[in-house]
Simulated assay, not measured.
Amino acid sequence: MRSHCLMSLLCTASLSLSACTSTNVEHTGFLHDYSVLQEHTSPSGQDVLGWVSPALARGRYTQAYLAPSQFFPSTEPTVRIPLSTLAGVTDYYDAALRHELGKVMQLVSTPGPNTLIVRPAITRVAASTQGLRFYEWLPVTLLAAGVSTATGIRDQDSEIATEVSFEDGSTGEVIAEVMRKGTGVPLDNNKQVLTADDVKVVLDGWASDLGKSYVALRR
């Protein structure tokens, strides 16, 4: 019986570690074409899936229209992720993008010629149980880790993902796409409410990378 429980814990741990190391991101249907996405490294050194049209002329876009961020697919509030959190996430994402893009190009209130339309979406916000650390693989600590997971007292990761479409302000043609995910502040257990503050550092990083990527493309 004990060996059976230990084997179950090992299987669970293996699955957890596989999920943590996976670079796959779920396709939600928000972007126009997922088949063109390739792995890149962002200016901050993070893994990103992205694509830029080879026909994009450098320096073509001198201003940007930032569409309000949205949850896609639509997300219903829960006890752990209430409406205040959902609203706080999109509000902060919009503010971070305005701040960083405003440093490198003019922001406008309506699309038009020479305008880059930026359409951001939050495609995931969730809390998941953290994978096992290397020192928890000994039989005794592995059993303790399994008990902690089962009783919900194990630390959890605050997870968030985004997809962003970039379009021509005159034609609506998609000229670039990006997907990425991040992990915010750890939560103490499976009861703690996830707040917008828990993922702000991730949103700030995404916005900063976007501004720096635009500067690189403009050269």
Rank of each mutant, 00 (worst) to 15 (best):
V36Y: 03
A67Q: 14
S44P: 04
A207W: 08
E136W: 11
F72V: 01
S165P: 05
S128K: 13
T28P: 05
L17S: 04
S44D: 06
G50S: 15
S109A: 13
G131E: 09
R219S: 14
P54I: 05
E173Y: 08
S165V: 04
T129I: 12
V89T: 10
T75E: 10
S109R: 03
C5F: 15
G184M: 02
D188F: 11
T78Q: 01
D204R: 09
S109G: 06
Q46P: 03
T195G: 09
D91W: 01
E39P: 02
M105W: 01
L86Q: 00
S53Y: 13
H27L: 06
R124L: 15
R58F: 01
E76M: 10
Q106S: 14
L132F: 14
V140A: 10
V25C: 05
R2G: 12
A161G: 02
R119I: 05
I122Y: 05
F71H: 12
L37A: 03
V202D: 01
Y92A: 07
V202L: 00
P54K: 01
R124E: 15
A126I: 02
C5G: 00
L194P: 07
Y61P: 09
L142M: 15
P113H: 08
A95G: 02
R98Q: 14
L203F: 10
I153C: 02
T141Q: 11
Q192E: 13
I117F: 11
S18M: 12
A216S: 14
E173A: 15
P113F: 07
N190K: 03
S16Y: 07
S84Q: 14
L217I: 01
V25D: 06
V185F: 06
A126V: 02
A145R: 10
M105L: 15
H32G: 02
D94I: 08
V201K: 04
T41S: 10
S16P: 02
L132K: 00
Y92Q: 03
A145S: 13
G172Y: 09
R154E: 08
S84Y: 00
V108L: 03
Q156A: 06
E163V: 11
I122V: 15
T62A: 08
G182P: 09
A145F: 13
T12C: 09
C20G: 00
T85K: 02
A13Q: 06
L97W: 12
E159G: 02
A67P: 05
L31F: 08
G88S: 07
T28E: 02
S42Q: 06
E76D: 10
C20Y: 10
M1I: 13
L15E: 08
N114E: 13
L107Y: 04
Q106I: 07
E167K: 11
D204T: 09
C11W: 09
R133L: 15
V201R: 03
S213L: 10
V89M: 11
A67M: 09
T183W: 12
V193G: 06
Y135P: 01
T149I: 13
Q38N: 07
A121R: 03
L138Q: 10
V108P: 01
R154K: 10
Y92V: 07
S69G: 12
V140D: 08
L187I: 12
A67G: 06
D198E: 07
D94S: 13
A95L: 10
V201F: 07
T115D: 05
L210G: 08
T162E: 14
L37V: 05
F30A: 00
P43F: 00
G45R: 00
V164N: 03
V174W: 05
G182N: 11
R133I: 11
D188T: 14
V185M: 11
